[in-house]
Design a protein around this nucleic acid. Structure first.
Lengths: 334, 334
DNA sequence: TTGAAAGCGCTAACAT
DNA sequence: ATGTTAGCGCTTTCAA
C-alpha cells in the first residue's frame, strides 16, 4: 500500500530475503515440482514484498526461447496486413506470446536482413513477403525456421503456407455476375507484377473461355482508389455491364468515378471488389466483394507456428477460399 | 557459397576459430576501441565463415537493454492507432529499435498487467490507454518509465505526453462552417465517457456561446458508422444546416444515411468529420474534417522515448492542432 | 592492445 | 524436497 520499490529485484535478493536458494525461488515462481508449502509461502511473501518478477530477458537466455514471435510485412498501411497483424497478435497473446513487428516498407532489398535480424530476437516468424524472390527465400529457410508463410508458397520446402485462393474468389464473383445476366465484363487490372493480380486475371480468362461464357475486357489500372477513379470513363466506353475490380480500393475508385459521371450503380453497371476491407460495407452502394479471411489467416498462422515451436513439424499448404459477399453494388443487367 | 551452417555459432566458437579471446571478438563485433588490424581481420573472417551474429538476447542481458520498445493500445482495429503504430515502428526502426505490440483489446482491467509485462521485455513503452484511471496510471509510472503517453496527460508527473488539441480542431471546423453561413449546427456526439468527445463537445459549447454565435443541437450518437447512419433522420428533423460528427466514421454513416433519405450533401446540409482516417478523402462527397496528425504523434513518441533512453529526461506536454481539411462535404448554406 | 575473470538474472542437472 | 553448481552468450572491468 505504500512501499515504492525501484531498481527491480532479482532472484538472488528474493532467495536471500526468504532464506532459501535461488533454485527454490525459481521453482516456486514457475510452479515447479514440489516445494514445501511453508517454503513456498516464504518465497511468495518475499517476492511480493520486493515486488519481484522474473526477468524475461534472463529467462530467455537460460531457456533458449523468448515467448515472442515476429510478423514481417512489406507495408503496414495495407488493410489486409493490419487485420492479419491484429488476429495474429491476439492468437499468440492468448498463448502467452508477444508479437514483434517488422515492416520492410516495401524495400525488398532490406527484407532479407530484416527477417534474419527479427528472427534472432524471437522464436519464430510469420513472413508476408510477396516480393522476395523464391530463390532467396529458399536459401533463407534454415535461418528463419520455424516460420510460416502468408500469401505465398514455397514448393518442395516444409514451410507451412497460408494463401488466398484468388481463383476461387474470382469464380464466385463471376458466377454471381453471370447469374445476374452479365455477359460483358471488364477487369480493372492490378499491378502486373502482383501475384494476386496474375492469379485473378488467369481465373477470369479461364472462366471466360475465350468469350464463350462471357466477353472479358481487360483494362490496365492499378491497386489504388485513384486508379479506379480514373478508369471510370474508359469502363463506360467499353459498353460492359459489369466491372470486376482488382481489389476493393480500385472498386471504390470506380464507384466514385462512375458516380461523378452520373452513372448509377448497380442499375447501369455492376461493380465488384476483392478483399472486403473494413470500409467495403460502407460505400454507396455497399460493395459486393470476395472477402479474404484475414482473421483466419492470422489465427492459423499462429497455430502452425505454435506446432513448430512445440517440435511438431507442421508442413502444410492451405488455400483459403474467399467468401462471396453480395451487397448493393451488383444487380441484374437491364 | 556452399556451407550451410545450422545451430548458430557463439562468440566462443568464433574466438576459438580465430585464436583470440572472446573479449576480442566482442570488441571487433562492436567496432570497439583499437584491435590490431590483423586480429580484427582474423575475427571477421572466422565470424563470416561460421555465419556468426551476436545473440540479441545475450547482449540484452549483459547490457541491460533490449533495443526494443512496446506500443500498448486498446484496439488495433482503430485506424488512428494503426497509423501511430506504423509511424512509431518506422521511426524506432530507423534508430535500430524494434517494436513490440500489445493490444489490450479494450479490456481495461488487463491493461495494467499487460503494460507491466510488456515493459519488462523492453526498454520503454508508448502507452495509448485512454481508459486506464489516472490514479492507477500515476501509481504505475515508476514501473513503466521510461514511457510516453499518447492521447492523455498525467499532470504533475514528468511523463511526456502527446495529445490532440480537440478544441482547436473543433474551432477550425466551426469557423469554417460559420464562414459558410451556417448558424444552426447539430453535434453527433460520441461515447459520453470518451475524453475526446467531452473535449469536442466542450469546445462546441464554448464556441456557440449560448447560441449567440450559432445554435448548437446535441444528438446522442456513438463512434461507429451505424450510429451516424441511424441518426440521419433525426438530424434532418432538427432543421440544422450543418452537422459536426464526433468522428469520421460517424460522419460516413451520416453521409450514407442522408444519401438514402435523398438529402444532398453539401447542397442541403453540410457534414464534417474528425480524424481524417484514410478513407475520408474517398467518400462521396469527400469529407471535410480535422486531420489528426497521427504520423507526427508516432514519430514524436519515439523521439521523446529516445531522449529518455539516452538519459535525458524529456518531460513535456504537447498538444497537436489538427489540420483543417476542407473537402466536398461542406458548402454554403442556402 | 589483448586476455582473464566476473557478472547480467535465470534455469536445470545433479547431489544430497 | 532443497541446495550446489554449471551454464545460457555476451560485455566489461581490471591486469598484464
Amino acid at each position: 500500500m505504500s512501499g515504492r520499490t525501484r531498481s527491480t529485484a532479482t532472484i538472488s535478493r528474493v532467495a536471500e530475503a526468504a532464506g532459501v536458494s535461488r533454485a527454490t525461488v525459481s521453482r516456486v515462481m514457475n510452479g515447479r515440482s514440489t516445494v514445501a508449502p511453508e517454503l513456498a509461502a516464504r518465497v511468495l511473501a518475499a517476492a511480493e514484498a520486493l515486488d519481484y518478477a522474473p526477468s524475461p530477458v534472463a529467462r530467455s537466455l537460460a531457456l533458449g526461447r523468448t515467448a515472442t514471435i515476429a510478423l514481417i510485412v512489406p507495408d503496414l498501411s495495407n488493410p489486409m496486413f493490419q487485420d492479419v497483424l491484429r488476429s495474429l497478435s491476439l492468437a499468440a497473446g492468448e498463448d502467452g506470446h508477444r508479437l514483434l513487428i517488422a515492416e520492410s516498407n516495401e524495400h525488398v532489398e532490406d527484407e532479407e536482413i530484416l527477417a534474419i535480424e527479427a528472427r534472432r530476437r524471437c522464436d519464430g516468424i510469420v513472413l508476408a513477403s510477396p516480393r522476395l524472390p523464391t530463390e532467396d527465400l529458399r536459401r533463407l529457410v534454415p535461418q528463419l525456421a520455424p516460420m510460416v508463410l502468408i500469401n505465398r508458397k514455397l514448393p518442395g520446402s516444409d514451410v507451412p503456407s497460408l494463401s488466398v485462393d484468388h481463383g476461387a474468389g474470382i469464380s464466385d464473383l463471376v458466377s454471381h455476375l453471370l447469374s445476374l445476366g452479365h455477359r460483358k465484363i471488364v477487369y480493372l487490372a492490378g499491378p502486373p507484377v502482383a501475384m494476386s493480380n496474375v492469379e485473378r486475371l488467369t481465373a477470369l480468362r479461364r472462366l471466360s473461355d475465350n468469350g464463350r461464357q462471357f466477353e472479358l475486357i481487360q483494362l490496365a489500372c492499378g491497386a489504388m482508389f485513384d486508379n479506379g477513379h480514373a478508369a471510370a470513363g474508359e469502363v463506360m466506353s467499353t459498353g460492359a455491364t459489369a466491372v470486376v475490380a482488382y481489389n476493393d480500393m480500385v472498386a471504390f475508385g470506380a464507384l466514385s468515378g462512375l458516380h461523378e459521371l452520373g452513372v448509377s450503380v448497380p442499375d447501369q453497371i455492376s461493380v465488384t471488389g476483392f478483399d472486403d476491407i473494413p470500409f467495403a460495407r460502407f460505400t454507396t452502394p455497399p460493395l459486393t466483394t470476395a472477402a479474404v479471411p484475414t482473421g483466419t489467416l492470422g489465427r492459423q498462422a499462429w497455430e502452425h507456428l505454435r506446432e513448430q515451436l512445440q517440435g511438431h513439424s507442421s508442413t502444410q499448404e492451405t488455400d483459403f477460399r474467399p467468401r462471396l459477399l453480395v451487397r448493393g453494388s451488383t444487380g441484374r443487367t437491364t
